[in-house]
Amino acid sequence: MARYHGPKARINRRLGALIYESAGAAKALERRDNPPGMHVKGGRRLSNWGKASAEKQKIKHYYGLGERQLRKYYHMVASKKGNTGEQLLTLCERRLDNVIRRAGFTKTRPQARQGIVHGHFFVNGVKVTSPSYQLRQGDVITVRAKEPIYNLYKGVLSEGGANTPDFVSFDGETLRATLLAVPGPNDFSLPVDVNIVVEFLSR
């Protein structure tokens, strides 16, 4: 799932949400929000298993997770006190690729993952090449000090459209982002019924 290269517009339409944010995929969802291949208005009615599976697919595609990684996150929070679903999404939101996307460095999460793997980003002055790196409160993200890389991300900012969440501060002049707090339920950007996903994973 982390390396999904198929038609992104089809995933958006199938799941009925803006999962992939590329321009073409977003426009396809706006034009036709019905599932692909379903010519009856409203499509088919899903079973409880089908609904849970669809919600799980939303999380996997949105955050770029594989099945094993999603289950790993679930097992990390399953025995902790509090709402398991919220804690699961908190882990997803704390991923380096997600924070880079939400801070406004990139337009999409795949772009953020590509930049991380290529060594474009540092956390607290140390190069990190793992998109799944879990950020902690106070961590600072900066861009590698090379002019072509700096200009690349400056160019993204010049296009506008960034909507930085409250749990991240971002300085567009220095290309520096700081995780101000651990993201909570009000910070989650994916509309998903995570509770039925937790029930699905607990089987």
Rank of each mutant, 00 (worst) to 15 (best):
R45S: 11
K60Y: 01
R32H: 15
R45C: 06
K58G: 01
L46G: 02
R31Y: 11
E55T: 03
S47N: 06
M38R: 13
P35M: 14
R45I: 00
N48P: 10
R32L: 15
H61S: 04
R44P: 06
R31L: 15
P35I: 04
K56L: 00
K58A: 01
G42E: 12
A52F: 01
M38P: 05
K58M: 00
E55S: 09
K60E: 07
N48D: 15
A54Q: 06
S47H: 09
P35F: 05
H61W: 04
R31S: 13
V40N: 13
G42T: 04
S53V: 08
D33R: 11
G37H: 06
V40S: 13
A52T: 03
K56D: 00
R32D: 15
H39L: 13
K41H: 10
P35Q: 10
M38A: 10
R45K: 12
H61T: 02
W49Y: 13
Q57D: 04
A52P: 14
A52V: 04
I59E: 01
K56V: 00
H61N: 09
Q57S: 03
G42L: 11
H39T: 07
S47Q: 12
S53E: 13
G37Y: 05
G50F: 05
S47C: 09
L46Q: 07
K56N: 00
R45Y: 04
N48K: 13
R44W: 05
K51P: 08
A52G: 05
K51I: 10
K51R: 10
H39V: 11
R44Y: 05
S53P: 06
Q57P: 00
N34Q: 15
R31A: 14
D33M: 14
M38S: 14
Q57N: 04
W49L: 12
L46C: 01
H61C: 06
G43P: 04
K51D: 14
G43V: 08
I59P: 06
M38K: 12
R32G: 09
N48S: 09
P35E: 07
P36K: 14
N48C: 02
Q57C: 00
S47A: 10
K56G: 01
K56C: 00
V40H: 05
G42W: 09
Q57H: 02
P35Y: 11
A54E: 09
N34A: 15
W49M: 11
L46A: 11
E55L: 02
K41S: 11
R44M: 08
R31K: 14
H39N: 11
S53Y: 09
K60I: 00
K51M: 11
A54T: 00
I59L: 11
V40D: 10
L46K: 14
G37A: 07
N34K: 11
H61G: 02
